[in-house]
Design a binder for these strands. Structure first.
Lengths: 204, 204
DNA sequence: CGGAATTGCTTGACAGTGTCAAGTAGCTGT
DNA sequence: ACAGCTACTTGACACTGTCAAGCAATTCCG
């Protein structure tokens, strides 16, 4: 074959994502996925180990998109450490709200086999981005307490955003933004200067 | 014995909880619940509006248990404001780990009808307990930023505890405790004294 | 070059699920 | 006594995931 034709495996993953984003986890079934991909209902069994296998492969794909999202969020934050961390968390939250189904797959669905090694690399990459964004606020070495504090807070903020989508039931007069929460968390820390070693030079 | 005031409705809720705690959300089906309650497979339809109705009723029950759990956690914290807040969050986390299925029902399951008014009272009561535990760390009035920061952090900590149950994949050398995370969050705050004689005349 | 094995998918079946329609036993109110 | 109502049962239907068998095309290899 001259060119590698798109494998049914990838088509199925795309079809599954489409179903997930259209109708949530309820709509994501093996048979519907196969139908959308234009194959028979048992075809997916030859590429994935049942429904959990398909969901796990989709979760792996989702982790890659997720790591890309928080990476570009960090890059959008420029060079200022606080803006970089904020951009990272904004990427986190934007992905969670724009791809709620994939987020659910990545962090919640009990059908995903979390021991599968295909999940590891991109999940680790995503965490490394968060870790590096936290680094300037520590004493130079990785501060696991700060990392987990930021991670827990942004993750919880995203999850609570899903749950309390009924405005009337929200206990807040005005829901604080995550930036305010992060400022609260970092209030006890020294905010690092932008370029501590070099002589004062403006940002371009 | 002679009088049998236990309604089938309550029996079904208990049966559902038993199934949920034994086999997770996968095992919680209408028909299994009916079978465990000793009735026919269509009996639940006369007490709940389908499976979502049963799950919503179970979630309401769960919110009551949850509010009780964080209430006793707060009481166990004694009178010191920090210990009270810590006890509250510990109650939160203990409930989440010991009743993972109910926690999933309360905050995650898309089948639960979150607009149902039966969810409101106990969910509100739970949040009020958290709010009051945060109050001493504010300037006297409810500080919604601090409340949401604490809530997001404890919620995210609980959720991440579910996800990353594979020790090998955890990015931490030693997973920081939630008390350490809370200390990090409160590091920018004045820790209130235990028995303030003039509560409102604190430093400003 | 030609059978044989493998791959990729289809077809068909089965048990299990939620939901609906119809039926029934038992109690209640008049 | 009788009608009506409540609480459930029975049966059916469409849909689900999974498995076994089959089949056509490709690849292997002797």
């Amino acid at each position: 074959m001259a060119q590698d034709p798109i494998s049914l495996r990838d088509v199925l993953i795309e079809a599954g994502i489409a179903l997930l984003e259209e109708g949530g986890m309820q709509a994501l079934t093996l048979r519907q996925t196969a139908a959308r991909a234009g194959v028979s209902h048992a075809a997916p069994a030859h590429h994935f180990d049942g429904l959990p296998g398909l969901l796990t492969a989709m979760a792996a794909h989702a982790f890659k998109l997720f790591a890309d999202a928080i990476h570009s969020g960090r890059e959008a934050g420029g060079t200022d450490p606080l803006q970089r961390l904020l951009g990272t968390t904004e990427g986190y939250l934007t992905f969670a709200s724009q791809h709620a189904g994939l987020f659910h797959l990545m962090f919640i669905s009990p059908q995903v086999n979390r021991a599968d090694p295909v999940l590891g690399p991109h999940a680790t990459r995503a965490y490394q981005i968060l870790r590096e964004a936290c680094q300037p606020f520590g004493d130079g070495t990785p501060d696991e307490t700060l990392e987990l504090a930021v991670w827990s807070m942004v993750h919880g903020y995203a999850m609570l955003g899903f749950t309390a989508d009924d405005p009337q039931r929200r206990p807040f007069h005005r829901r604080p933004t995550f930036a305010e929460l992060l400022a609260e968390l970092l209030a006890g820390r020294q905010i690092p200067v932008i370029n501590p070693l070099a002589p004062a030079s403006d940002t371009r």
